[in-house]
């Protein structure tokens, strides 16, 4: 056996140490990567375990079919439907506002605006996304509702119309941004095909670009619904916190999120049925938004695969 070269063995030892450190770092990074998975599991775990006692006390049938939600009354009722109806009504109003405005904005930015105009407008939309929802809630209650009351004097201070409209304005940039991405992903060759036939900008946008980007645009709407359902502060401030099984926008009603806030604001008795009920409501909210998000991302992905 040849004599060991001390220089080489030193280098070798250094290599081993270095590889060890590298491995350690990789494991640390992987653990950080896992945090996202852990959070998801944490959410599911907490929602299920904290609401299990609730579902032992309240049957699933009552929870899903009863139209009365009065956890704080003498005679307690736990039917989630009034909270769902409030959530859906406000989200519906928001969509009526946001879908046309968001789509028009997206079409304009993607097909009509010059590069310069687009670069000016997009930051404004991004700023709008950055406005905290508690500020939007202030406007719904103290600016929009009073204006609506001038038109329709019977409108109560807490109603679903005002916050719905404000939520719509809040959602516009989301729809515009996702839908614009989808339209800009339509290959230029397809637009050229239409222009070469003598189509105008509007004709090209409506009859070629939008159909080609349909799934991306639909994904934008789906993600917007999810955002509306999960929105909390606007509705907690301006729609009222009284559960009300109605789809009438000029009435006051609580959403799932507003209910959670109203309970959290009061004295929470850990382990009490009030405490458990917000986790039960949370499960419903989580399932609704999660399935919409998965559906939205799936639709969006289906679109990107095509080109």
């Amino acid at each position: 056996m040849a004599k060991k070269n001390p220089k080489i063995s030193r280098a070798l030892a250094k290599n081993i140490r270095r590889n060890f450190v590298e491995r350690l770092i990789e494991i640390a990074l992987m653990l950080s990567g896992l945090i996202a998975v852990l959070i998801t599991f944490g959410i599911v775990f907490i929602l299920v375990t904290e609401s299990l006692p609730f579902f032992e006390a309240v049957s699933l049938k009552e929870f899903l079919t009863s139209t009365v939600w009065t956890p704080n009354f003498e005679k307690k009722n736990y039917g989630i439907l009034p909270l769902v109806s409030g959530t859906l009504t406000i989200t519906g109003i928001a969509l009526i506002v946001a879908v046309p405005l968001g789509t028009i904005t997206a079409v304009y930015l993607s097909e009509f605006a010059s590069h310069k105009i687009r670069e000016t407008i997009k930051p404004v939309l991004e700023l709008l996304v950055g406005v905290p929802t508690v500020v939007f809630g202030y406007f719904a209650l103290l600016l929009v509702t009073p204006i609506l009351q001038k038109i329709y004097p019977d409108l109560p201070t807490f109603n679903m119309l005002g916050p719905g409209i404000v939520m719509g304005v809040m959602i516009v940039p989301y729809i515009a941004s996702v839908a614009e991405d989808a339209m800009r992903a339509v290959p230029m060759s397809m637009r050229e095909g239409a222009y070469a036939m003598g189509a105008t900008r509007f004709q090209t946008a409506v009859s070629v670009v939008m159909p080609a980007a349909t799934s991306g645009i639909v994904a934008a709407y789906i993600l917007a619904v999810s955002r509306g359902i999960g929105e909390t502060m606007i509705v907690a401030i301006a729609a009222g916190q009284q559960p009300n099984f109605t789809f009438n926008p000029v009435e006051s009603a609580a959403t799932i999120t507003a209910y959670i806030v109203s309970v959290a604001l009061g004295d929470l008795e850990h382990g009490g049925i009030g405490y458990q009920s917000i986790f039960a409501a949370g499960i419903v909210l989580f399932i609704m938004t999660l399935s919409l998000n998965i559906l939205g991302q799936w639709t969006r992905k289906k679109f990107t695969e095509r080109y």
């Binding site: 397809m190 050229e192 095909g193 070469a196 070629v208």
Partner: peptide, 12 residues
């Protein structure tokens, strides 16, 4: 009218 290098039918 024009015919392009790569076929570019509309999604219709």
């Amino acid at each position: 009218s024009m015919v392009f290098q790569k076929p570019n039918p509309f999604p219709k």
